[in-house]
Design a protein around this nucleic acid. Structure first.
Length: 489
RNA sequence: GGGCCGGUAGCUCAGCGGUAGAGCACCUGACUUUUAAUCAGAGGGUCGUGGGUUCGAUCCCCACCCGGCUCACCA
């Protein structure tokens, strides 16, 4: 290993300690309290005159004066000041701190609690022991680690230096905890379904492909858990959900990562309107618990999760923004003629459904800042959703939008096996025509539906994007601990 | 994939044909209540990689690698 000067200095200190008989990286600590416990019960512990042992990382710089020294220690629960006096700690301990220990070292400190003259809660140190030497030095004291590439490649360092960053991931964990509790309370059963699948389905996306050596079989990393979860509704569960990773072999940008976390849930004997109420209730509760309010500030805008969400039919939303009525321009040529007549700046697509989606993405989606359900999607875009009784070319489907981002997708699930088979066949024709994201025929899924699936409402929520909204982050990689980065040579 | 911008000390950044700089950090010395401690001094560089132009390249040119922003893609 090649070491720079700063690393070599630190290593020399470690070797000096080892020569003097210190273990270097001892296996355990004799700590008696966590920092947060000390801070919470400070007055009481001072009154008891307790001698206690804390452990943590030296942060915030060391300030060593002739016969007195200060530093801060962070153990993940909180941060407290260490205060050494040469007279009280003794020459040996003081010299150990001054000569052997560096910022970022992980140490154990034993002493009593005192307030400094400036009123800061401090551990008045009697003895110190190194628990783990940090051979790498800290980044700049005030600017910190700013380089985005280094922050993401060395996320551990990013987290050490920036407690705000740790807070984002605490909130992300809280989102999942509250979501799980919400679903458990409503008698959904948490399940696990295959991540390696012989057929991929449940979404329109290109998969990652892998191979099982012993079986000699290609497998796909799942792009959604949908079709397995619905098999479980056939199997008799009243409600199921799964929180897990999906993998989509697509581009990376501020709202897409190749692997991302999705919650999918399915409720028997419910429809998409029931699911809308479920989403409203769930996100209201999550927003309240995670941010302390049902009004969430995102990139300077106030998002209201306290009220019921606007419900806008897709066709109406497009008509409002573009003047084009997609329920009247029902084929590609007619729709594109309308687009030309209206002089709209959108790309021309190869199918009517894709053209509708293009209009929506371009003219409607960016304006959907407040939580909104866009409802009733064309059947061509929704091969797993049930048709509307009164409008069979549209489906009982909604997508949930917040801050211009799609955070959820839901429908009254298609449970007619014959219709489902036709939809798969149509998707197969699209695939043959070059649409790499079209669904594949899944005859086992059809077989499951042939045993009868109750009317069912289903939902997918993108956890990463929800975390972006609730932690006010503009890019998905700031809510993913280790986002995808290209390998360095 | 396209366009624009960037990669210089551990970190944050300046320099842009002629001896490679600052701040912080680190090291040495002084200092018994610091909070960006203070004061004095010292050390630290394959200027992303590989070619080219030039008497001379961190600087100009070409290619490549890795990023950032943005557009496209992601129904």
């Amino acid at each position: 290993m090649e070491l720079n000067d700063l690393q070599a200095q630190r290593l020399a200190k470690l070797e000096r300690l080892r020569e003097a008989g210190h273990p270097g990286y001892p296996a355990r600590t004799g700590r008696t309290h966590r920092v947060s416990e000390v801070l919470d019960n400070f007055d009481q512990l001072v009154e008891q005159g307790a001698t206690l042992t804390l452990a943590g990382r030296i942060l915030g710089g060391r300030r060593v004066m002739g016969k007195i020294a200060f530093a801060h220690m962070d153990d993940g629960s909180g941060s407290i000041q260490l205060w050494l006096s040469r007279g009280d700690a003794g020459e040996e301990t003081f010299a150990h701190f001054r000569d052997d220990l560096d910022t970022f070292d992980i140490v154990e400190a034993t002493g009593t609690l005192r307030l400094t003259q400036k009123g800061e809660k401090s551990l008045f140190v009697q003895s110190l022991k190194l628990l783990a030497k940090a051979l790498n030095p800290p980044p700049e004291k005030w600017e910190g680690l700013k380089d985005v590439e280094e922050r993401l490649r060395q996320r551990y360092l990013d987290l050490i230096v920036n407690d705000d960053r740790r807070e984002i991931f605490r909130k992300r964990a809280r989102i999942i905890t509250v979501m799980r509790r919400f679903l458990d309370e409503r008698d959904f059963v948490e399940v696990e379904t295959p991540t390696l699948q012989p057929l991929y389905g449940g979404a329109a996306a290109r998969p990652f492909t892998t191979f099982h050596n012993q079986l000699g079989q290609s497998l796909y990393m799942r792009i959604a858990s949908e079709l397995y979860l619905k098999r479980l509704i056939v199997g008799g569960f009243a409600g199921v959900y799964e929180i897990g990773k999906n993998f989509r072999n697509e581009g990376v940008d501020r709202s897409h990562n190749p692997e991302f976390t999705m919650m999918e849930c399915y409720q028997a004997y419910a429809d998409y309107e029931d699911i809308m109420r479920l989403v409203e209730d769930m996100l209201r509760e999550i927003a309240q618990e995670v941010t302390g309010s049902t009004t969430v500030s995102y990139q300077g805008q106030q998002l209201d999760f306290g009220s019921s969400w606007a419900r806008v039919p897709l066709a109406e939303a497009i008509a409002e923004k573009t003047g084009i009525d997609i329920s009247r321009s029902t084929d590609l040529a007619a729709l594109q003629a309308e687009i030309k007549a209206a002089n709209l700046k959108v790309e021309f697509k190869t199918t009517w459904a894709k053209q509708v989606d293009e209009l929506f993405s371009e003219y409607v989606q960016p304006a959907l800042v407040q939580p909104t359900f866009v409802v009733d999607y064309p059947v061509e875009l929704s091969p797993l959703a049930k048709r509307k009784d009164d409008q069979p070319t549209f489906t009982e489907r909604f997508e949930a939008f917040v801050a211009g981002m799609e955070v959820g997708n839901a429908f009254s699930e298609l449970n007619d096996p014959l219709d489902q088979e036709q939809r798969f066949l149509e998707q197969g024709r699209d695939y043959a025509a070059g649409d790499a994201e079209a669904h594949q025929m899944d005859s086992d899924y059809i077989n499951a539906l042939m045993y009868g699936m109750p009317p069912t409402g289903g939902l997918g929520i993108g956890i990463d994007r929800l975390a972006m909204v609730l932690t006010d982050q503009s890019t998905i990689r700031e809510v993913i601990l280790f986002p995808h980065m290209r390998q360095k040579e």
